[in-house]
């Protein structure tokens, strides 16, 4: 699932570099705060994940084989920050020495594989399950399997979806967004499940022999989530719901949209990839609709091919939900401050 340089535009590639560099900066900052020097362990684990990718695991009954999910494995062993940096190291070596991914696509690959695995998969799935915040009635062994498998599935789904978005935004492929996502997501659901199971098997083995090597294992803590953790989880949920689910919401357009855009008899062609001046739009109704849409739209230059209605919803979905999340964060911060002040007064 490594992104290639040839499939990205410089803008998308640079944006992904900046985003990944931001997360790397945060990870370095967090690591430097901790006293422990993990560098050799990080390096050996990264080399292990790299070498582990070379092993083929037979999937019973299919004849095909799977690999390990590096992001989740490293996060469970080193914690998310060290794991993220180790993953960067793995991805850089893969791209330089094995042409797996590209030097300019590295930012996108770090985001698609390392960020989702080490941060989203870890904070959203692995840690809550291992700390017993969910499925607390199950034994720790079962929770470890669940955490790793679900974490891998989410990681792979988000990674595959990002590949689709990045390629579509780069304007390289003519593949309609819906079709592309429709092909990628189910394939990666299966891959995520298999990778999750293999990774879970490895971690379970480590759990049985040397429990202390695995993160967040031990008596479940009843400590409450800190405000910072709640906020980071909220932000992630916002992005996922905003980005993913608004796409599903737009799969069935409302009546007006259907009348304006979905009516082929009016001469409107769904293919927007070609020159709009002389292709596709031929009716005055569709022309007017396009003008109205252009003047009203918040992000007018996001020309998504073939499926711009769906994607437009997705981008505006992310922006919209980010604004809502920001207001909610400000509100909760203000509320917390007010409460603290009240408690102070009472004391």
């Amino acid at each position: 699932m490594h992104m290639a340089d040839a499939l990205l535009s410089p803008t998308v590639a640079t944006t992904m570099y900046v985003a990944s560099a931001g997360i790397a900066g945060l990870s370095i900052h967090q690591l430097q705060k901790s006293e422990e020097d993990k560098l050799p362990i990080m390096a050996v684990s990264a080399a292990l994940v790299f070498a582990g990718q070379m092993i083929n695991y037979t999937i019973p009954g299919t004849g095909s084989s799977g690999h390990i999910c590096g992001g989740i494995l490293l996060s469970a062993l080193l914690g998310p920050y060290a794991a993220f940096l180790s993953m960067i190291s793995v991805l850089l070596i893969q791209c330089l020495f094995f042409a797996d991914g590209g030097l300019m696509a590295l930012g996108a690959n770090i985001w698609n594989m390392a960020f989702y695995g080490c941060f989203v998969g870890y904070f959203l799935i692995y840690r809550p399950i291992m700390k017993g915040r969910v499925f607390s009635s199950l034994s720790e062994r079962i929770r470890l399997i669940l955490a790793v498998v679900l974490g891998s599935i989410l990681t792979l789904q988000l990674g595959a979806f990002s590949v689709v978005i990045e390629t579509t935004l780069s304007g390289i492929t003519e593949l309609p967004f819906g079709l592309f996502a429709g092909l990628m997501q189910p394939i990666h659901l299966a891959i995520g499940l298999v990778e999750g199971l293999i990774t879970a098997a490895i971690l379970l083995f480590v759990y049985e022999t040397r429990k202390e090597l695995i993160m967040d294992v031990g008596p479940s803590t009843t400590a409450k989530l800190s405000l910072k953790q709640i906020l980071s989880v909220l932000v992630i949920i916002t992005f996922v719901t905003g980005g993913l689910f608004s796409l599903y919401a737009s799969a069935k357009p409302d009546g007006l949209e259907w009348a304006l855009f979905g009516n082929k008899d009016e001469g409107y062609s769904e293919n927007m990839a070609l020159d709009e001046e002389n292709y596709g739009i031929s009716s005055s109704l569709a022309d007017n609709a396009a003008k109205v849409q252009e003047s009203m739209s918040f992000l007018p230059d996001y020309a998504f091919k073939d499926n711009d209605a769906a994607l437009g919803t997705s981008v505006s979905g992310i922006v919209g939900s980010s604004i809502v999340a920001l207001v909610a964060i400000l509100f909760s911060l203000g509320f917390g401050f007010y409460k603290k002040k009240g408690a102070h007064k009472a004391a």
């Binding site: 037979t58 390990i68 062993l77």
Partner: peptide, 27 residues
């Protein structure tokens, strides 16, 4: 063709344990 399901965990798991020890020694 590949590692059988019964050895999924132990195959890389053993290497992982050895590697962690080795990393500590290197450190």
């Amino acid at each position: 063709k590949g590692i059988h399901i019964s050895a999924w965990g132990s195959f890389l798991g053993q290497l992982l344990l050895r590697s962690m020890d080795r990393a500590t020694e290197i450190f």
